[in-house]
C-alpha cells in the first residue's frame, strides 16, 4: 500500500447503468416520476430500470432518491493532453 488514494475497484461492470439497491428502495416512486427518459418503473413496489436503452446516465434518479438507494458508478479520467502536470 502506498500513500496514494486506494484504487476504487468497487464495481466490476459489463455495462454502465444505475444500480438500484432493492433493500433500501422504499418504492416511493420519486425516481420514476423524475426520470426524464421514463427508463424507470415500479415493479413489485420497488424501483426498477425497465428501459435500459433509454437511460442517459443523467444522475437525476440518484440525486432525488430519498434513501440513497440508487448508485451510478463513474470512471474518472483525464481528457487527452491533460494527464501531465
Amino acid at each position: 500500500m502506498n500513500t496514494a488514494v486506494p484504487r476504487y475497484i468497487t464495481l466490476m461492470r459489463t455495462e454502465w447503468l444505475p444500480k438500484i439497491d432493492s433493500l433500501h428502495c422504499t418504492g416511493c416512486g420519486s425516481c420514476v416520476a423524475a426520470c426524464p427518459e421514463k427508463a424507470l418503473a415500479l415493479l413489485g413496489q420497488k424501483a426498477s430500470l425497465v428501459n435500459v436503452a433509454a437511460c442517459t446516465y443523467c444522475r437525476t434518479c440518484e440525486a432525488i432518491c430519498p434513501t440513497a438507494a440508487i448508485d451510478l458508478p463513474f470512471l474518472i479520467c483525464f481528457a487527452p493532453n491533460q494527464d501531465l502536470p
Partner: peptide
C-alpha cells in the same frame, strides 16, 4: 479535487467504477 486527480492518475482498471456514495 485531490481525489479525482489521484484516481485519474492511478492505475486504470478495466470496467472499474466509483460511486458517489463511495
Amino acid at each position: 479535487a485531490r481525489f479525482l486527480l489521484q484516481q485519474a492518475e492511478g492505475d486504470s482498471i478495466l470496467e472499474a467504477g466509483v460511486t458517489r456514495k463511495a
